[in-house]
Design a binder for these strands. Structure first.
Length: 496
RNA sequence: GGUCCUUUGGCCGAGUGGCUAGGCAAAGCUCUGCAAAAGCUUCUACAGCGGUUCGAAUCCGCUAGGGACCUCCA
């Protein structure tokens, strides 16, 4: 079946046809490592991790490039345009690179928690100053950029005469030219819509590099163009990022690369929607962020408890990546329970013994299960609809539990279908969705101790010595270990 | 102000012009020494008003609410 991707550029779903058959190149805008990641940041990384995993699952050889922005963009604070990274560094009395290192480490730690695969290449902006400078030189040569007082600006008006500037983000160039924004450097620009490729560094600016135009630092958008071109070529398959980056970041990327490379850089633009909180985008401008460390430890006023990275991952997967996802403590609580139920069923399924008969004797059940399994790929092929995949898997959960409790027999469906179920659950939950058991129960010594306690409890129960049996269960619970009696006398346990 | 998006049952969330996901919560039943699970059943929604259609939550228009971008932002 053919994979379809919603292309933000054309605003419709398109069949994914890679430039090089069997290969896929994907660039995703990575973090600016000037601060701690929050829940909102988690969405693109998990979304594109799943897209990466799914492309791999489809058999593509993927080069996944995700940059680290460590040079800092300037932001408007008061009137002074400043380098975000160096400003924070002054405040915290740290070297810029020390700050970058700290938050890079923290970011990588968070990605590990979320079980995100590492990108193939993780280039840094500061490591590609030369590439950015030569790209800017090329744009000047082509006549689409001009130098003013040591800064270089992109000539949007001229570009728009020949190319559809604004198409990706749905802007009208005339409106952009009229925008009455009062930003730093505005008086240097020929038009208000122009954007900086290189900025002259004021004396107090720590991060600065020599360039043909004097000492300065790269503009907002050039790093992604330079690094994407270097590692994926002048034209590549997929470019991802948050919807809020469409304009001006991605729009400008298109313009820069188009002039420099004489072709539009990207075939499929993919944008994830925002995570909202009380209906509002989570973002530092709104002062409503929940940092990942706060989420994992439960130390935020809005949280009643800590939530595991897998709960967050599951929460995100339960909605479609192009919809806004509203955060609340209740929603996470629900996701936690849902994930637990799904994961237990998954583990039960994997341990289910195969019946001797290859095919079953309950055609209705068989065809229902088969149908649910067969749909999974078509859901993912339809613009990565993880929510629908999970819905189908949830429909199978009661069947699995019924097998466990002997309400249904695996003979009814046969070993062929059981194998298929095992394979699909593993493929979708683990390989594609990147979920994993979040408990620390993978400890052989603990398992041995638990087996001993279970034996004792079974013995005391059989002697109707409920005082002993309850003591074992209750005291384990105090330690955060939940012991459950299963049907048929077996017992299972898990760490809360 | 401009551009665009959105509004689904107690909550979160899929969604296609007709067959009305899924999760959480709630209620009842079954199982059970108790507990927890688990199983079964129940709860039928699409902001409002018009229109198109044999038929619309799904298409169109208007009204109302919410939001995003236009400025660093995932």
């Amino acid at each position: 079946m053919a994979l379809q991707i919603f292309n933000s550029y054309s605003r419709q779903k398109e069949i994914f046809t890679p430039i090089t058959p069997g290969h896929a190149g994907m660039y995703v805008c990575g973090p600016t490592v000037s601060g701690e990641s929050h829940l909102g940041h988690a969405r693109p990384y998990i979304t594109f991790d799943v897209i990466y995993r799914y492309l791999l699952h489809k058999g593509f050889k993927v080069r996944y490039v995700r940059n680290i922005t460590d040079a800092g963009h300037f932001e408007e604070e008061g009137r002074e345009a400043e380098d975000k990274v160096s400003k924070k560094a002054l405040l915290e009395k740290l070297e810029p690179m020390e700050l970058v290192q700290k938050y890079s480490n923290l970011f990588h730690w968070a990605m590990l928690q979320f079980n995100c695969l590492e990108p193939s290449i993780e280039p840094t902006a500061t490591g590609h100053i030369i590439e950015q400078i030569s790209m800017i030189e090329k744009i000047i040569e082509e006549g689409y950029a001009y130098v003013v007082n040591g800064s270089v600006y992109f000539d949007v008006k001229k570009y728009a005469e020949k190319y559809p500037y604004g198409k990706l983000s749905g802007r009208v160039i005339e409106d952009l030219l009229e925008t009455t924004r009062n930003l730093d450097g505005q008086e240097e620009k020929r038009d208000k819509a122009d954007f900086a490729l290189w900025k002259k560094a004021p004396p107090e600016h720590i991060m600065r590099w020599k360039s043909p135009w004097g000492e300065g630092f790269p503009g907002w958008h050039i790093e992604c163009s330079a690094m994407a071109t270097k590692y994926l070529g002048t034209r590549f398959d997929i470019h991802g990022g948050g919807m809020d980056l469409q304009f001006p970041h991605h729009e400008s990327e298109i313009a820069q690369s188009t002039i420099c490379n004489h072709e539009a850089p990207v075939n499929y633009w993919v944008h994830n929607n925002m995570i909202t909180i009380d209906g509002r985008k989570m973002g530092k401008s709104y002062n409503n962020v929940i940092k990942l460390t706060e989420l994992f430890t439960g130390t935020h006023p809005l949280l009643t408890q800590a939530y595991s990275p897998m709960t967050v991952r599951f929460f995100i997967l339960q909605s479609h990546y192009r919809s806004t996802l509203d955060f609340s403590n209740d929603a996470l609580l629900a996701a936690e329970k849902a994930f637990k139920r799904m994961w237990e069923a998954h583990e039960t399924l994997q341990q289910l013994p195969l019946p001797p008969n290859e095919s079953g004797n309950d055609p209705a059940l068989e065809s229902k299960l088969n149908g649910l399994l067969m749909e999974l790929e078509s859901f993912m092929d339809d613009d990565f609809n993880s929510a629908k995949v999970l819905a189908n898997l949830f429909e199978i959960v009661p069947v699995i539990n019924s097998f466990k409790d002997k309400i249904l027999s695996t003979h009814d469906v046969g070993s062929g279908l059981i194998k298929l179920m095992k394979q699909h659950f593993k493929t979708y939950l683990e390989d594609i969705f990147g979920l994993k058991n979040s408990s620390e129960a993978d400890n052989d010594k603990l398992k041995a101790v638990m087996n001993l306690l279970i034996d004792i409890r079974k013995e005391s129960k059989s002697k109707k010595d409920f005082i002993t049996s309850d003591k074992i269960r209750n005291q384990l619970l105090e330690q955060g270990i939940v012991l459950k009696d299963e049907k048929g006398g077996d017992m299972s346990w898990y760490i809360q």
